[in-house]
């Protein structure tokens, strides 16, 4: 599956078909991210149910602590 992540085209396995699966594939802590798919903000409790499709544009902001 070909998707665009943070402006870069990436090929991911077809089994990486939800936000949860994608974050696991990228080794990113789900709780520490803000995610948008095709411009829509995805709530954390919808990560597992949000299906990804070929050609999707995904923005992933991964936060670290401190303030």
């Amino acid at each position: 599956m070909l998707i665009r992540i943070n402006g870069r085209e990436e090929t991911v396995p077809d089994t990486t078909d939800t936000i949860t699966a994608l974050l696991e594939f990228l080794n990113i802590q789900a709780r520490q991210t803000a995610v948008e798919v095709n411009g829509a903000v995805i709530e954390h409790n919808s990560f597992a149910a949000t299906k990804l499709h070929n050609g999707d544009t995904i923005e992933i902001v991964s936060f670290v602590g401190g303030g």
Binding site: Q32, A34, F63
Partner: peptide, 14 residues
């Protein structure tokens, strides 16, 4: 301060 709170609040604000 906390990474998970940052992510949760930015998501909610958006």
């Amino acid at each position: 301060d906390s990474a998970s709170e940052k992510a949760a609040i930015v998501t909610a604000l958006r």
